[in-house]
Design a binder for these strands. Structure first.
Lengths: 346, 346
DNA sequence: CCCGGAGATTTTAAGCATAAAATTTCCAGG
DNA sequence: CCTGGAAATTTTATGCTTAAAATCTCCGGG
């Protein structure tokens, strides 16, 4: 059984198995795909033969015969200049979801729209993939439109622009709800003076998050927390958090809870707190968003909103597999992960 | 040409093209694969027919006939708990490298070794992928051994353990050289008192980096910089950087340049500097590693070592495509990216 | 006017698997 | 002993492409 000799005979086909088992090729196929129509005795014979020959169903041949590609394409977004760790998590979940659906995830790199479309056409019309998943959908993103124009099935993570009822399927996390959960959480713990850091009216998600913040605050009667100075428009990176948090704390009525739209912002705020000798979670509560690895921040864990990315991935895969049906638009609720940045006991 | 009607007739095969062009199927195949053996007149006829029918070569059928999978598998590493942004960059480059080699990148998720091997066997012996690329190879990693045992082609990013001449191919960035470049860079700019943050003798790369640091310092005669207190063993995350940097600065002879083994560490150090009113690059130089998105840190850019990840990815793809030949072991040199954390003018 | 041979194109066969139709096997009931 | 019919298995046909061998076309030299 040296590596060399066993490699020599490479691959056994169904014919080989059938011959060895003394049955027809079709019986072997049935053993694999519809075992219930084969008698137990035959089934065992065939299984033994498959084992002996180390037979593996040729996925390419099967795919050709069935005319059903067992692959799903994912357009890998261009590296976020800020380094969005969440996409990492999502990619992982996407791969898992594909494996769960007995598919493979194939990556295509982002590029100019025309080149991307050519690549997608080759893959889809070349029967290589069943369809595509796209993420990081921007406002007025050309990709959904172009894909649809070409009749290529796809599902999007995030809607493009404000339109809800697009003629294609999309899924997104409930951004408003996520922020509401964070607000409710700190309010439940007695905080009355909140601030919202990272507002950005230019993005759909940004608008939704701000709405969630305002509504939750008003519902709770925290009118001071929606004052102009308490809603900070800024970038979402860590360094910005380090800069912005002190400015908030130096106001006449400083907030005791800071709701951030990203984990890096929250981490930055925590650094700023610590450098003033304040203890996050005890003196000032801080929350992040996306539950990235950054939430393990030394001795302090950052309370964060975890998107249902596994569920989102699974739904996207399902939508692509199901193919052309009436489009679905799903908004999935996130969950709150409580850590010491809002609760020293956690 | 409404979307609906054109979608109805789905896909045209070579037969359809041949019929329309009034030639045999084989001629169409030749036009695609060996145009030089077909007369120009025929070639044009066939091209016209292909265009009219929007013909796409069926990649699955081709793959079946040629028995050469056009896919390469990549074992997506488990999410680094610290959130390693570099893997993001690498994945990107890997996808690009595959596209350049006219292949597709298929993702498999990491899992326990047995399940992973089953998945790999199915994919490889099922003729779906030509081989695999694995990364984040740990010391005594079981994966290379198991893959080899099964006769599955693969190439590794990183060697496992200290052994150089493994019986499989691997590639890595020259970690020692990278740190040396950083040391030389700050030494060239007049710094005589350096510190090395993030030493970790438990990992192969960690050892190499420390060697690079010590050698470069000694070569330059910076003996004070290799004193025990100047080589800090610690984690590689940002929060650690925030904690460690002040400790270094509070010693009797504080360093004026801090060489970090990661960008998060460097970012943390910069935060610590700024909170003391020091200006990175002017008062104290700081370097990072991997040239991640974090190097754009607000107003200060972090000088960092960029691994030749595009070249590494391309080589890995080449090795998998070439398949079983004598194993190659490549150590590729990184490059230095100078920013304001070491040079205010940059 | 015939023939050789280069160049162009077609025929034959295969690669591996599966759906649908056809056939064989086997048993109970008449 | 024959027959209907369910269960098990095989036969036939097909998906799309490509390597290799066979055939055809055409032109110039003998």
């Amino acid at each position: 059984m040296s590596g060399k000799s066993s490699n020599a005979q490479r691959k056994a086909s169904m014919t080989d198995v059938a011959d060895l088992a003394g049955v027809s090729v079709m019986t072997v196929s049935n053993v694999i795909n519809r075992p219930e129509v084969v008698s137990e005795a035959t089934r065992e014979k065939v299984h033994a033969a498959m084992l002996e020959l180390r037979y593996r169903n040729n996925l390419v041949a099967r795919s050709l015969r069935l005319a059903q590609p067992r692959q799903i394409g994912y357009v890998l977004p261009d590296r976020d200049p800020v380094g969005n760790q969440y996409m990492d998590v999502f990619l992982h979940d996407l791969a898992v979801a594909c494996q769960g659906a007995d598919r493979n995830l194939a990556l295509i790199t982002e590029q100019d729209t025309e080149a991307l479309m050519t690549a997608c056409e080759n893959l889809y019309f070349g029967q290589s993939v069943a369809g595509f998943i796209i993420s990081n959908v921007k406002s007025a993103d050309p990709r959904p439109v172009e894909l649809r124009k070409r009749g290529i099935p796809f599902a999007a993570y995030g809607r493009s622009g404000e339109a809800f009822a697009t003629p294609w399927s999309w899924i997104e996390g409930d951004a408003a709800l996520g922020i509401e959960m964070a607000v409710d959480h700190v309010a439940d713990r007695g905080h009355r003076e909140l601030a919202f850091v990272g507002a950005n009216p230019a993005s759909v998600t940004g608008v939704q998050r701000e709405i969630g913040y305002r509504e939750a605050c008003l519902r709770r009667g925290l009118t001071g927390s929606v004052a102009p100075g308490r809603i900070v428009h800024c970038a979402r990176d860590l360094e910005t958090g380090v800069r912005v948090a002190p400015a908030l704390l130096d106001t006449a009525m400083p907030p005791t809870a800071i709701i951030c739209v990203s984990d890096p912002l929250a981490a930055g705020a925590i650094i700023a707190l610590q450098s003033r000798g304040l203890v996050p979670g005890r003196d000032v509560a801080v929350t992040g968003y996306d539950d990235t690895p950054l939430t393990s921040f030394g001795t302090v864990g950052i309370t964060s909103i975890r998107q249902a990315s596994a569920a989102i991935a699974a739904e996207l895969v399902r939508l692509v597999i199901e193919g052309r049906k009436s489009p679905e638009h799903l908004v999935l609720p996130p969950t709150l992960v409580v850590r010491s940045s809002t609760d020293p006991a956690a």
